[in-house]
Computed example of a mutant assay.
Amino acid sequence: MKHEKGSEIASLIREINATLNAQLREAFKENNLTPPQMMIMFMLSEEKKLKVSEISTKMNLANSTVSGIIDRLEKLGYVQRVRSEVDRRVVHVEPSKQAEELHKLFHDTVTQFLGTIVEDATDKQITEVMTGLNTLQKLLNREKQKD
């Protein structure tokens, strides 16, 4: 019975993820950014600089995949690769000045987008969503701690 619920949860997460990605892709189509590119930009806005391997780990993607995404972001002028002065073999990815403007746009758009989603929801519905998401996060963190 619990395995079936696990499968249902996985299916719901995939559906929610696909819906959010499609709607965010639409919101950012004028910037030519894909959801994975937006995720990297969000991470860099938080961390300021990360190695490709760190981004790969956080996104659960291969280094080569992340490197390709970063190549495209670099061509768009949103990130730059910077070699470490301590160890020249280490390369960090940092947001460019242009990325600061993008981050503000991203933050405002996502906040507005999520605000419109809950706009017509009742207080009870919002509380139920928050409770469910918090419960899921706690369950996931508990599983992560077992590893």
Rank of each mutant, 00 (worst) to 15 (best):
K48D: 13
L44D: 03
E85V: 06
I126N: 09
H107G: 01
L102T: 00
M39D: 11
K97Y: 13
E54F: 07
L140R: 09
H103C: 04
V90P: 01
L114N: 06
L61P: 03
E26S: 12
Y78W: 04
S7Y: 12
R142A: 11
L33S: 00
E30R: 07
L133Y: 05
L33K: 01
T116D: 07
Q137K: 08
N134C: 09
T122C: 05
V90C: 05
S11R: 11
N21Y: 06
G115Q: 01
N31M: 11
E54C: 07
T34H: 02
L139N: 10
E30D: 13
N60R: 15
V66K: 02
Q137N: 08
A121T: 11
E8C: 12
H107P: 01
K97N: 12
T111I: 12
A10D: 04
I69W: 05
V110G: 02
L105D: 03
K138I: 09
V118S: 09
E8W: 12
E128F: 13
L105G: 01
R81Q: 05
T19S: 12
Q37A: 08
L105T: 04
Q125V: 15
Q125P: 08
K48L: 14
E143C: 11
R88N: 08
P36I: 06
K49G: 07
I70P: 01
T131V: 14
M43D: 11
Q98W: 10
F106I: 14
L73Y: 00
T34F: 04
S67W: 00
L61K: 10
N63Q: 13
D87K: 03
E119K: 07
A99Q: 04
F113G: 00
N63K: 14
Q112P: 06
G77A: 13
A62T: 10
L73D: 01
V90E: 05
R142Q: 09
Q80F: 08
S84A: 06
T127N: 14
D108C: 09
V86S: 08
Q23V: 03
N63F: 14
A99H: 02
L105V: 08
R14Q: 12
T19H: 09
N21C: 11
V66H: 02
R72S: 06
G77Y: 10
Q23Y: 01
E101N: 09
E46Y: 15
S53P: 03
E54N: 08
P35V: 09
A99W: 02
K75S: 11
K144L: 14
N17D: 08
V90L: 08
H107S: 10
K124I: 14
R72I: 08
T65G: 03
E54W: 07
E26R: 10
G68Y: 06
T135R: 07
V129M: 15
M130P: 03
T57D: 14
S7T: 12
Q98D: 12
L133M: 07
V82M: 11
F113Q: 00
R81E: 04
Q98T: 13
